[in-house]
Structures are given as C-alpha cells and as structure tokens.
Design a protein around this nucleic acid. Structure first.
Lengths: 231, 231
DNA sequence: CCAAAAGTGTTTCACTTACACCCATGA
DNA sequence: TCATGGGTGTAAGTGAAACACTTTTGG
C-alpha cells in the first residue's frame, strides 16, 4: 500500500434495487429504468450512477434514488459490491449495490427527472437485465428474504398504518409461502412491537380491520434487553 | 450514466480481516500488519492493497492475503465496502472489505513476503487501528458472530480433523458464552453433517476424544432438501 | 340476511433446557 | 489407582404447528 497513484483506478458507481409492494395485486415490485444509450440501449436496468468525489457511498445511492425516481426518505442498505472484470463493456467500472424499501405512501414513483422511463416490475416476471444486473437482483432478493425473518424491515414496505392481514400478506408475498393467520398474529403480538391505533380500515365491503403501526421506540428498547425479532 | 470518463475516479483497495483460532489459549485472533509508511506509520492495520485492473475483487483479496501473509486456499467472503470521504488522508480511496477464516492447519503465518511485521492479535485485546479499520473490524466481528449461528463456517477455523469439544470451544470463544456440552453434542449430531473418523486425538494425558470432520457433501445434500443449519 | 373477511383458543408435538454420573485413558 | 477430560440419558418446560368456529360490517 505505497502510493495511491501508481495504480489504474476504476470508475465507481452505485446501483440501487428499489423494492415496493403492491398490496392490491399482491406482488413484490422492483423499479427498473429503460436505458436509452449504448451499451444495452433499450434494455431494462437497475437505477444507478456514478459516485462523486467527496460523497459517501450511501449519499450517492440516495442522490441517484432521488434523481431517477423522485423517491426520498426510505430504508436503504448496502448489499454487495460487484467488480468482475468485463461486467461493463465501457471499461473498468465497479458498482456498489444498495437496496431500498419503499412504502406505498411514497410511490410518487415514475417521476424520473430526466426523460428515461422508469417502471415497476413484478419480481417474478422480470425481463433480462443489462450488465450483470441479473446477479445484483438475485442478491438483493436473497438478502431481502433472508433479512425479513430476523429484522423488522418488512414494515418499510407497508403504509405507516397497516392491518395485521397486510403484514401477513407481505410476508407471504416476499417469502412465497402461505402462513397460518392465528399463529402469525400470536407471534407478532407476542413480540410486542406494534402499537394498536384507535383507527380502523376504511372503504372495505365487509368488517373493517384494526390498524397498527410499528413502534420503533419499543422495538429498540426490547432489542437492548436482548430480545430477538424473528418471524 | 452517460460517459464513464466524465467523473473523478477513486482508488480502489481491498482489505481483508483474517480470523484464526488459537485453541491452546482459547482465543479468537486476527492478523494485523504494522504500517511502515505514513499515514499512520507504526500503527497496526488490516492487511490490504490496491485492486488491479482486470482483476476481480475476490482475486485481489486472495492475492493480498497471499502476498502479505503467505496464506492461501481459505474461506473468503466479501463483507462491506467503505467509502466515507476522508477515510484515507491520501485522497479518495474506497475499500472493499473481506474477511477470511484460516484453519490452524494453515497458520504458516507471519511469513509476510515483504519486510512488514505481521502478527496475530486476540480480538478482545486489539490496539487502535489505522484509518477506519476499527469500523471494518467491528463489522467483521459482527458478521462472523452472526453468521456462525446459521452457516457452517465455523469449521473453517478448525483443523480438518477436530473433536466435538474443540468445535464447542470455537462457538464459545466466538460467541462469548458457555454452552452445555450434552446439548451441544445432541444438536450437532442431530444435524448429521459430521463424519465420524476411525481416529482419535493424540498426545493428551487423559482419555482421547474421537475425531470428526465436516461432511460438506452431506451438508449440501441436506441443504437442498430444505434443512437449515442452526446452532 | 347474506357474503366476506376479521378475529379468537386449545391441543399436540417437537425441541430446548437443565442437570449428574459413569467411562476410558495416560501417567 | 487416580486424575482428567470424554462421553451419555432423562425429565420438565417452552414454543411452534395444526386446526375450526364465531364476530362484525357493508351491501
């Protein structure tokens, strides 16, 4: 590790897999951008862009997110860094991948500031993506599925006020398996991280469900006391 | 994402946290290198170096590992990428951190090819490290502890042939808590991923323990069938 | 009053935990 | 033969899984 300047330097990008939930059609979505330039013009890709000097990686990811989709203030976590030689035909480009979880409250979506098309795709029906973005997507899905079980990140995909059924649906959609509603309720209530609201669901043609929100304060408290979230 | 060349580029390094186990003194170790150049001359740091063009990140980490410590053929996994502005006073340097698990079979160690001092440190007694390497170390430890519980990576830290007691000790050392030996045995045997050898421990002044090895073949088989490793 | 989803209790079974003694070996 | 760690069985308790009916509301 002598001088930093003896070496060729890669270009550095961040790519951000943006997850959203469609509760109506009960599917997990990701936002993709249609490339207008070569290479891979016309192909869909994970939104991303170059990191600027003086900017942290996370800041770059947040900036790209905002610029390309108009989305801000979301859950964001670093995923993995992709640097295989040849992954980008333009040259040596290393990409730090992030994933974001966007609640339906914030699907202002498709509001890309530049002219590129941005669209939500159902994760089970993805087109073949540009670059090594299929790999990135695979990694992101694996991480989301894995982490959902032991970290309270699912709430980031729901509206701030949600019903237990919606929460259960979220788990069923992402994990791809049916869950027993009685057991699910017992488990989630036993963890004592939900705050029951005085409000109920509106506009449903049947009995309305009670609304809840995730009590982050209580969650952090319990974590300090050594509880562990698991679903 | 127009032209890759409009932007400043960071220098890219890999740093590799090397974990080893000392079964005699029952402690978890990491290998550190004493810096001979500014910045941080004389301080201890996580071994690492610049990524070369045409080289994958993992290949760079393996190369550095080999060059700096003489260690090869070990478990290696990407950890996290550190890119905070100002993390390196020499300029914009982004580092992809890896961690490696080295079995005592391979502690040829301290055989750094260049003149720098390399030494094993007990993780609970680390000096203050150069750059943001304290953060990297924290992340590596957290990952190791977390992953040990649900992935069979502990075996990477043991000799190829080991006793159940040694395996248990490993878990105790890394997780920092005593485990009940009867329950530990029951659990590990119930997972059916160990192959019992016809060999026993040598050179102990008491009853010799049976030796086992991790049966990776069987493990993969069971994983496909949906079993999940957990300790 | 009917359709549709919300919400609730109990039993069974498996797994985890806690705990103490005999066994085999080398010196 | 004794000291040292290796190795084993069982009972109690806890949590997960399986399962079906009653309640509420809007139309």
């Amino acid at each position: 590790m002598s001088h930093a300047y003896e070496y060729e330097r890669p270009a550095l990008t961040v790519d951000c897999v943006i997850f959203g939930l469609d509760l109506e059609e009960e599917s997990l979505k990701v936002m993709l951008i249609e490339r207008d330039l070569e290479p891979f013009a016309g192909r869909w890709a994970i939104p991303g862009g170059f990191v600027r000097q003086g900017e942290s990686l996370e800041a770059a990811a947040l900036r790209e997110l905002e610029e390309e989709t108009g989305i801000s203030d979301v859950f964001l976590e670093q995923l993995y860094t992709f640097g295989a030689p040849g992954r980008d035909p333009r040259g040596w480009i290393v990409s730090v991948a992030y994933y974001a979880l966007v609640s339906p409250d914030k699907h202002h979506v498709t509001a890309a500031t530049d002219a590129r098309r941005a669209e939500w795709f159902t994760v089970t029906k993805l087109p073949s993506l540009a670059f090594d973005h299929n790999d990135i997507m695979r990694a992101a899905l694996q991480r989301l599925r894995g982490k959902l079980a032991y970290a309270p990140i699912g709430f980031e995909l729901l509206p701030r006020k949600f019903t237990i059924k919606q929460l259960q649906k979220l788990y069923e959609i992402v994990l791809g398996e049916k869950l027993d509603n009685r057991n699910f309720r017992k488990k989630i209530f036993s963890m004592d991280v939900l705050r029951e609201l005085d409000e109920i669901q509106k506009g449903v043609p049947h009995r309305a469900a009670r609304l809840y929100k995730f009590d982050e304060r209580k969650y952090k408290q319990l974590m300090k006391q050594g509880m562990n979230f698991e679903l």
